[in-house]
Write a protein that binds this DNA or RNA. Structure first.
Length: 656
DNA sequence: ATAGGGTTACAA
DNA sequence: TTGTAACCCTAT
């Protein structure tokens, strides 16, 4: 195969920085989870989620981190039965499958795995019973409960509860979902300790007050405060730090290279557009030196927290316990990493609670939460959460479901006091009943299509209509002439026309639909039809964008969707300038789709994100190495054959 | 395990 | 119906 692995050495600045960001946000997400600030957790995971779609310097530990995020976000939503990450499953069932993936990739002691599985299943039972979903509870009982002796007792108990339709019982009352969450977090943390992210280290070493514990060159020259409390690093200092850290992390780009690129970028960034990329707080027009425009400076500036940085100093070196990346040709991140909290791997699953508080400072490490929050609140990133997709059924087609409202879940409060585990955080178990999940929706200001893509060519979405299917083989797909004049009426219809390519700034509320993918020029950007539909009604169909986004599951066999009434939608600000926005709209890694339905997953449409992984995988390993690709990305429920088929489809559609 | 033809479930 | 993305089946 034509391995295109060759030039993997030269990483783009984006890849490198995305990796830093990735590490950072994963770290933040875990911290938030630990602090029971689940709102923040979802914000961070959504940032991570979108980051992953961009080119990123994938280290082998990335997969591990992604899996952890997937796992925790499913756990986090496990008490919301109307959400789904993978169609037919409840969040906790999805967590089980992610657990399988985790166990496959990492060496998890069998006993531990069992324990966790059991905990998840029992919790799922409790959740089902509490919410009166007895039939589902029964299913769970049948499909997941093993006959293992140790669970026999509970099984019996659950069985009788199900039979008697009892949704209250001392056992049910006793279990606390929040404890369960923390238990799961403990499991994850015992399994994999996330090293302090590069960005934080950098920040700390730069002597930033909020982070550093090390007196690092207290030379006042090293940093100077300027307006807004931002810290300015001297170029020299930065270079120094970079040198050390880049080596440690195996970053191959030299400082000057980076600087050059940044300068270059910085110039370009003058244009108003690039704002969405990085959680920009309103950027100070007052310019700063080129290097100040980089991520680092951005991270650096924030309110100075006078928090105890102490903890940072005393931490002891730490090593990653499990690595096991599929292919680790890259230097592992085995560098001693510091870790502040004391939770050691030996802690028993139950001792966690006390320790939790002591770790708060960790998350304070970077006081730039404000910025992050802004980010979260700001258009692009915030989305995530979940959305819902539902299959449209002719019958209930008429019933429009959900009207969405703009709702900031706890938003306002949150912005002001980002770090604090406000609202949701403390609530033990966010019961869906109480507040039917944070459904957030937003208005989308979108330009539906990527300009450039259009400019290039609006290839018809699929090759001409073939009259005969098989007879003409792949040649047509692969070789075919690029410019395909031919366009069926259908195509015409679907194809967004040039007129549209001029950033149609339109205010709309979409359901997941805002799929703008630069990656798939050919795609029939969800067009008017879709748009209208979304606007008015709901979530009904979405199959139009299917291939890219919503993993909508299709039909639900016979039964009408039960909880289907309220679906969640999600929308987001799509910056018109949205350079490369490539949000995986829907269901992605961490966010769930809702609209649960109990249908056998008949068809699982490919999400944008999955397609991105696939592309990246092919770029990295070459087409044909499906199994390798599959194991290198956090695919869930995709087989190598699925990947291969999807690739074939993508080729056919010229999405690649 | 992968390639590629055949089948199926949907949307239009 | 028809077209097709996702899936299935099977030879290699």
């Amino acid at each position: 195969m034509g391995e295109s692995v060759g030039e993997a050495r030269s990483l783009s600045d984006e890849q490198i920085i995305n990796r830093w960001s990735f590490d950072y946000y994963v770290f933040k997400a875990l911290s938030a989870f630990r602090d029971a600030d689940y709102t923040a957790f979802t914000h961070f995971t959504s940032i991570v989620e979108s980051l992953v779609v961009r080119p990123v310097d994938g280290h082998s530990d990335m997969i591990v981190k992604l899996r952890c995020m997937q796992f925790l976000s499913r756990i986090n939503n496990g008490d919301k039965l109307d959400l789904t990450f993978e169609e037919p499953k409840t969040p906790l069932e999805s967590a089980l499958s992610v657990l399988e993936d985790i166990c496959r990739d990492m060496s998890v002691p069998p006993r531990e795995k069992e324990r966790v599985q059991q905990a998840i299943i029992e919790t799922l039972m409790v959740v089902c019973l509490r919410s009166g979903e007895f039939t589902r509870a029964e299913e769970v009982l049948l499909t997941h409960f093993s006959d293992a002796a140790d669970s026999a007792g509970k099984r019996k108990l659950f069985e009788s509860l199900v039979r008697r339709r009892r949704s209250s019982h001392s056992v049910l009352q006793l279990s606390s979902y929040s404890d369960f969450k923390q238990d799961m977090l403990d499991f994850i943390e015992r399994l994999y300790r996330v090293p302090e992210p590069f960005l934080l280290q950098m920040l700390r070493r730069s002597g930033h007050p909020g982070v550093s514990s090390e007196p690092v060159t207290s030379s006042s020259q090293e940093r100077q405060k300027d307006h807004g409390g931002a810290v300015r690093l001297s170029l020299r200092g930065l270079r120094q730090v970079y040198g050390v850290l880049s080596e440690r992390y195996g970053v191959s780009v030299s400082f000057s290279q980076l600087q050059q690129e940044l300068e270059h970028q910085d110039e370009q960034e003058q244009s108003p557009e690039l704002h969405l990329a990085l959680s920009e707080t309103p950027r100070d027009p007052e310019s700063q030196p080129p290097y100040a425009g980089m991520t680092i400076s951005r991270l650096v500036q924030e309110d100075d927290s006078q928090l105890s940085d102490q903890g940072q100093d005393t931490r002891s070196p730490h090593r990653i316990l499990v690595t096991s990346g599929p292919e680790s040709d890259e230097p592992e991140l085995q560098t001693p990493v510091t870790r502040s909290h004391s939770r050691s791997s030996s802690t028993s699953p139950h001792d966690r609670s006390p320790a939790r508080h002591t770790q708060k400072h960790i998350r304070m490490v970077l006081s730039s939460d404000v910025e992050l929050e802004d980010h979260a609140a700001s258009p692009p990133s915030r989305c995530s959460s979940r959305q819902q997709q539902k299959k449209k059924k002719k019958s209930d087609h008429s019933e429009s479901e959900c009207v969405l409202m703009e709702e900031e879940d706890g938003g306002s409060a949150q912005v002001s006091s980002p770090a604090r585990p406000s609202s949701s955080s403390s609530s033990p178990a966010v019961r869906r009943s109480a507040r039917d999940t944070p459904r957030q929706s937003r208005m989308v200001l979108s330009s539906d299509v990527e300009l450039e893509d259009h400019a290039v060519s609006p290839p018809s979405r699929r090759s001409s209509r073939k009259q005969q299917k098989k007879s003409d083989h792949s040649e047509s797909a692969l070789v075919s002439s690029p410019a395909r004049p031919r366009r069926s009426d259908r195509d015409t219809q679907n194809q967004s026309q040039s007129s549209e390519s001029e950033c149609v700034v339109e205010l709309e509320v979409k359901d997941g639909g805002s799929c703008i993918q630069h990656s798939t020029p050919a795609r029939p950007s969800s067009t008017d039809t879709q748009r209208h539909r979304n606007r008015s009604v709901t979530v009904s169909s979405e199959s139009e964008e299917h291939s890219e986004s919503p993993a909508v599951k299709t039909s639900r066999r016979s039964s009408p969707s039960p909880g289907g009434a309220h679906k969640r939608r999600r929308a987001r600000w799509q910056d018109v300038s949205g350079t490369h926005e490539n949000w995986s709209d829907e269901e992605s890694l961490f966010s769930s789709t809702s609209g649960r339905s109990s249908k056998k997953s008949s068809r699982k449409m490919w999400t944008v994100q999955e397609s991105e992984w696939l592309k990246e995988g092919v770029r990295r390993f070459g087409a044909g190495h499906w199994e390798k690709i599959r194991s290198s990305f956090p695919f869930t429920e995709r087989t190598a054959v699925n990947l291969k088929d999807r690739w074939r489809t993508m080729l056919k559609l010229r999405l690649v």
